[in-house]
Protein backbone atom coordinates (compact mmCIF):
# COMPACT_ATOMS: atom_id res chain seq x y z
CA UNK A 1 0.00 0.00 0.00
CA UNK A 2 3.05 2.26 -0.10
CA UNK A 3 3.29 2.12 -3.88
CA UNK A 4 3.94 5.46 -5.49
CA UNK A 5 0.79 7.19 -6.68
CA UNK A 6 1.78 6.73 -10.33
CA UNK A 7 0.97 3.02 -10.16
CA UNK A 8 -2.40 3.60 -8.62
CA UNK A 9 -5.55 4.02 -10.66
CA UNK A 10 -7.29 5.67 -7.71
CA UNK A 11 -5.68 7.43 -4.81
CA UNK A 12 -6.62 9.80 -2.06
CA UNK A 13 -4.47 12.02 0.13
CA UNK A 14 -5.43 13.09 3.65
CA UNK A 15 -9.15 13.26 2.96
CA UNK A 16 -11.13 15.15 5.57
CA UNK A 17 -14.88 15.08 5.33
CA UNK A 18 -17.61 15.96 7.79
CA UNK A 19 -21.28 15.22 7.30
CA UNK A 20 -23.75 17.68 8.78
CA UNK A 21 -21.15 19.01 11.16
CA UNK A 22 -19.90 15.70 12.57
CA UNK A 23 -16.51 14.55 11.29
CA UNK A 24 -16.72 11.34 9.26
CA UNK A 25 -13.23 11.13 7.81
CA UNK A 26 -10.17 12.75 9.30
CA UNK A 27 -7.09 12.43 7.18
CA UNK A 28 -7.42 9.16 5.24
CA UNK A 29 -4.88 8.42 2.53
CA UNK A 30 -4.93 5.39 0.28
CA UNK A 31 -4.11 4.11 -3.16
CA UNK A 32 -5.55 1.25 -5.23
CA UNK A 33 -3.68 -0.42 -8.05
CA UNK A 34 -5.45 -1.25 -11.24
CA UNK A 35 -7.20 -4.62 -11.16
CA UNK A 36 -6.76 -5.04 -7.41
CA UNK A 37 -9.41 -5.55 -4.78
CA UNK A 38 -9.17 -3.23 -1.76
CA UNK A 39 -11.28 -4.02 1.28
CA UNK A 40 -12.14 -1.11 3.57
CA UNK A 41 -12.94 -2.82 6.84
CA UNK A 42 -14.28 -1.40 10.04
CA UNK A 43 -17.21 -1.28 12.43
CA UNK A 44 -20.38 0.68 11.72
CA UNK A 45 -20.04 4.45 11.58
CA UNK A 46 -16.28 4.30 10.98
CA UNK A 47 -16.58 6.24 7.72
CA UNK A 48 -16.53 3.41 5.16
CA UNK A 49 -19.52 4.65 3.14
CA UNK A 50 -18.32 8.26 3.32
CA UNK A 51 -14.88 7.21 2.09
CA UNK A 52 -16.41 5.32 -0.85
CA UNK A 53 -18.67 8.26 -1.67
CA UNK A 54 -15.68 10.61 -1.63
CA UNK A 55 -13.63 8.30 -3.83
CA UNK A 56 -16.47 7.85 -6.32
CA UNK A 57 -17.13 11.58 -6.59
CA UNK A 58 -20.57 11.54 -4.97
CA UNK A 59 -19.17 13.70 -2.20
CA UNK A 60 -16.41 16.29 -2.37
CA UNK A 61 -14.14 16.18 0.69
CA UNK A 62 -13.69 19.45 2.54
CA UNK A 63 -9.93 18.88 2.61
CA UNK A 64 -7.62 16.53 0.78
CA UNK A 65 -7.41 15.23 -2.73
CA UNK A 66 -8.90 12.37 -4.75
CA UNK A 67 -7.25 11.40 -8.00
CA UNK A 68 -8.47 8.95 -10.60
CA UNK A 69 -6.34 7.81 -13.53
CA UNK A 70 -4.01 10.75 -13.18
CA UNK A 71 -6.77 13.36 -13.03
CA UNK A 72 -8.13 15.16 -9.96
CA UNK A 73 -11.72 14.25 -9.03
CA UNK A 74 -12.17 16.74 -6.18
CA UNK A 75 -11.89 19.74 -8.51
CA UNK A 76 -14.45 18.55 -11.09
CA UNK A 77 -17.85 20.17 -11.40
CA UNK A 78 -20.98 18.26 -10.45
CA UNK A 79 -21.82 17.46 -14.09
CA UNK A 80 -18.30 16.26 -14.81
CA UNK A 81 -18.34 14.03 -11.75
CA UNK A 82 -21.71 12.66 -12.82
CA UNK A 83 -20.30 11.78 -16.24
CA UNK A 84 -17.23 10.22 -14.68
CA UNK A 85 -19.46 8.06 -12.47
CA UNK A 86 -21.61 7.03 -15.39
CA UNK A 87 -18.71 6.17 -17.69
CA UNK A 88 -15.90 4.86 -15.49
CA UNK A 89 -17.37 3.91 -12.10
CA UNK A 90 -20.03 1.52 -10.89
CA UNK A 91 -21.70 1.32 -7.51
CA UNK A 92 -23.31 -1.50 -5.56
CA UNK A 93 -25.12 -0.47 -2.39
CA UNK A 94 -26.11 -2.48 0.68
CA UNK A 95 -29.67 -2.77 -0.67
CA UNK A 96 -30.27 -4.14 -4.17
CA UNK A 97 -31.66 -0.80 -5.33
CA UNK A 98 -33.09 -1.85 -8.68
CA UNK A 99 -35.70 0.10 -10.61
CA UNK A 100 -38.94 -1.66 -9.57
CA UNK A 101 -40.70 -1.23 -12.94
CA UNK A 102 -37.95 -2.76 -15.03
CA UNK A 103 -37.38 -6.50 -15.24
CA UNK A 104 -34.10 -8.28 -14.60
CA UNK A 105 -32.31 -7.80 -17.88
CA UNK A 106 -33.56 -4.23 -18.34
CA UNK A 107 -32.16 -3.34 -14.91
CA UNK A 108 -28.84 -4.94 -15.77
CA UNK A 109 -28.73 -3.24 -19.18
CA UNK A 110 -29.69 0.21 -17.88
CA UNK A 111 -26.13 1.65 -17.69
CA UNK A 112 -25.52 0.65 -21.31
CA UNK A 113 -28.89 2.06 -22.43
CA UNK A 114 -28.01 5.29 -20.65
CA UNK A 115 -24.84 5.50 -22.72
CA UNK A 116 -26.91 5.17 -25.87
CA UNK A 117 -26.03 1.57 -26.71
CA UNK A 118 -28.58 -0.08 -28.99
CA UNK A 119 -31.14 -2.20 -27.21
CA UNK A 120 -30.02 -5.40 -28.89
CA UNK A 121 -26.39 -4.98 -27.84
CA UNK A 122 -27.33 -3.88 -24.33
CA UNK A 123 -29.59 -6.89 -23.87
CA UNK A 124 -26.90 -9.27 -25.13
CA UNK A 125 -24.34 -7.84 -22.71
CA UNK A 126 -26.79 -7.88 -19.81
CA UNK A 127 -27.86 -11.47 -20.51
CA UNK A 128 -24.22 -12.54 -20.63
CA UNK A 129 -23.55 -11.17 -17.17
CA UNK A 130 -26.80 -12.51 -15.75
CA UNK A 131 -25.84 -15.95 -16.99
CA UNK A 132 -22.37 -15.65 -15.53
CA UNK A 133 -23.83 -14.67 -12.16
CA UNK A 134 -26.31 -17.55 -12.34
CA UNK A 135 -29.47 -15.41 -12.46
CA UNK A 136 -30.35 -15.75 -16.16
CA UNK A 137 -33.74 -17.20 -15.18
CA UNK A 138 -34.59 -13.89 -13.48
CA UNK A 139 -34.10 -11.88 -16.68
CA UNK A 140 -37.80 -11.56 -17.43
CA UNK A 141 -39.05 -11.00 -13.90
CA UNK A 142 -39.62 -7.86 -11.86
CA UNK A 143 -37.42 -7.27 -8.79
CA UNK A 144 -40.46 -7.45 -6.48
CA UNK A 145 -40.98 -11.10 -7.49
CA UNK A 146 -37.40 -12.14 -6.66
CA UNK A 147 -35.69 -13.04 -3.39
CA UNK A 148 -33.22 -10.56 -2.05
CA UNK A 149 -30.00 -12.41 -2.90
CA UNK A 150 -31.07 -12.74 -6.54
CA UNK A 151 -31.87 -9.04 -6.68
CA UNK A 152 -28.44 -8.28 -5.28
CA UNK A 153 -26.88 -10.45 -7.98
CA UNK A 154 -28.77 -8.49 -10.61
CA UNK A 155 -27.36 -5.32 -9.01
CA UNK A 156 -23.88 -6.86 -9.32
CA UNK A 157 -24.62 -7.69 -12.96
CA UNK A 158 -25.77 -4.12 -13.53
CA UNK A 159 -22.51 -2.82 -12.10
CA UNK A 160 -20.38 -5.16 -14.21
CA UNK A 161 -22.34 -4.76 -17.47
CA UNK A 162 -21.17 -1.17 -17.59
CA UNK A 163 -17.53 -2.41 -17.80
CA UNK A 164 -16.38 0.11 -15.20
CA UNK A 165 -12.75 0.87 -14.41
CA UNK A 166 -13.50 0.99 -10.69
CA UNK A 167 -16.34 -0.81 -8.95
CA UNK A 168 -17.39 0.52 -5.55
CA UNK A 169 -19.23 -2.00 -3.40
CA UNK A 170 -20.60 -0.56 -0.17
CA UNK A 171 -21.32 -3.54 2.09
CA UNK A 172 -22.86 -5.43 -0.82
CA UNK A 173 -23.77 -8.39 1.40
CA UNK A 174 -25.10 -6.50 4.41
CA UNK A 175 -28.69 -7.61 3.88
CA UNK A 176 -28.03 -11.24 2.92
CA UNK A 177 -27.87 -14.53 4.79
CA UNK A 178 -24.47 -16.03 5.48
CA UNK A 179 -24.61 -18.63 2.68
CA UNK A 180 -25.75 -16.10 0.07
CA UNK A 181 -23.22 -13.60 1.37
CA UNK A 182 -20.20 -15.75 0.60
CA UNK A 183 -21.54 -16.66 -2.83
CA UNK A 184 -22.33 -13.11 -3.90
CA UNK A 185 -18.95 -11.86 -2.69
CA UNK A 186 -17.07 -14.64 -4.41
CA UNK A 187 -18.82 -14.12 -7.72
CA UNK A 188 -18.27 -10.37 -7.43
CA UNK A 189 -14.53 -10.59 -6.78
CA UNK A 190 -13.95 -13.39 -9.28
CA UNK A 191 -15.80 -11.55 -12.04
CA UNK A 192 -13.91 -8.34 -11.26
CA UNK A 193 -10.55 -10.08 -11.29
CA UNK A 194 -11.18 -11.89 -14.55
CA UNK A 195 -12.08 -8.61 -16.26
CA UNK A 196 -9.44 -6.44 -14.65
CA UNK A 197 -11.94 -4.29 -12.78
CA UNK A 198 -10.57 -2.50 -9.74
CA UNK A 199 -12.80 -3.03 -6.71
CA UNK A 200 -13.13 -0.95 -3.55
CA UNK A 201 -15.16 -3.03 -1.13
CA UNK A 202 -16.50 -1.73 2.16
CA UNK A 203 -17.23 -4.53 4.59
CA UNK A 204 -17.83 -5.35 8.23
CA UNK A 205 -16.58 -8.93 8.35
CA UNK A 206 -13.15 -10.44 8.09
CA UNK A 207 -14.15 -13.22 5.70
CA UNK A 208 -14.92 -10.68 3.04
CA UNK A 209 -11.64 -8.94 3.66
CA UNK A 210 -9.88 -12.24 3.10
CA UNK A 211 -10.98 -12.20 -0.55
CA UNK A 212 -9.23 -8.88 -1.12
CA UNK A 213 -5.66 -8.14 -2.18
CA UNK A 214 -5.30 -5.42 0.39
CA UNK A 215 -7.15 -4.46 3.51
CA UNK A 216 -7.59 -1.00 4.92
CA UNK A 217 -8.83 -1.05 8.50
CA UNK A 218 -10.76 2.08 9.36
CA UNK A 219 -11.71 3.23 12.85
CA UNK A 220 -13.55 6.47 13.60
CA UNK A 221 -12.62 8.03 10.30
CA UNK A 222 -8.91 7.17 10.55
CA UNK A 223 -6.75 4.38 9.19
CA UNK A 224 -6.20 2.01 12.06
CA UNK A 225 -2.95 0.68 10.55
CA UNK A 226 -1.34 4.08 10.04
CA UNK A 227 1.22 5.25 12.53
CA UNK A 228 -0.94 6.98 15.08
CA UNK A 229 0.23 10.23 16.61
CA UNK A 230 1.39 9.58 20.15
CA UNK A 231 -1.38 9.04 22.57
CA UNK A 232 -3.65 11.27 20.62
CA UNK A 233 -7.05 11.59 22.18
CA UNK A 234 -5.99 10.03 25.48
CA UNK A 235 -6.85 13.18 27.34
CA UNK A 236 -10.21 13.49 25.71
CA UNK A 237 -11.10 9.90 26.53
CA UNK A 238 -10.37 10.07 30.24
CA UNK A 239 -13.79 11.16 31.24
CA UNK A 240 -14.83 10.69 34.80
CA UNK A 241 -18.24 9.16 34.95
Amino acid sequence: MVAPPDDDVLWARSVHCSLEGSPALSGVSLGVREGHVLAVRGPRACGKTTLLRCLSGQLVPQEGEVWFDGHPVHTLSRAQRERLRAERFAWIGPEPSLVPELNGWENAALPLLLRGTSQRAAKAAAMEWLERLDVADCAGRKPAALPRHRRQRIAVARALTARPTVLFADEPTASLHASDRAQVLRTLTTAARSHGVTVVLATLDEDAAALADHCLPLVDGRRADAATPEAEGQEACSLSV
Binding site: Q58, A79, E82, R83, R85, A86, E87, F89, A90, W91, G93, E95, S97, L98, V99, P100, L110, P111, L114, R158, A159, A162
Partner: peptide, 12 residues
Amino acid sequence: ETNSALGEAGTP
Protein backbone atom coordinates in the same frame (compact mmCIF):
# COMPACT_ATOMS: atom_id res chain seq x y z
CA GLU B 1 -35.94 6.48 -3.58
CA THR B 2 -35.51 4.92 -7.03
CA ASN B 3 -34.06 8.15 -8.39
CA SER B 4 -31.51 8.47 -5.61
CA ALA B 5 -30.48 4.85 -6.22
CA LEU B 6 -30.14 5.58 -9.93
CA GLY B 7 -28.09 8.66 -9.06
CA GLU B 8 -25.74 6.56 -6.94
CA ALA B 9 -25.27 4.27 -9.93
CA GLY B 10 -24.19 7.27 -11.99
CA THR B 11 -27.39 8.12 -13.87
CA PRO B 12 -27.19 11.80 -14.87
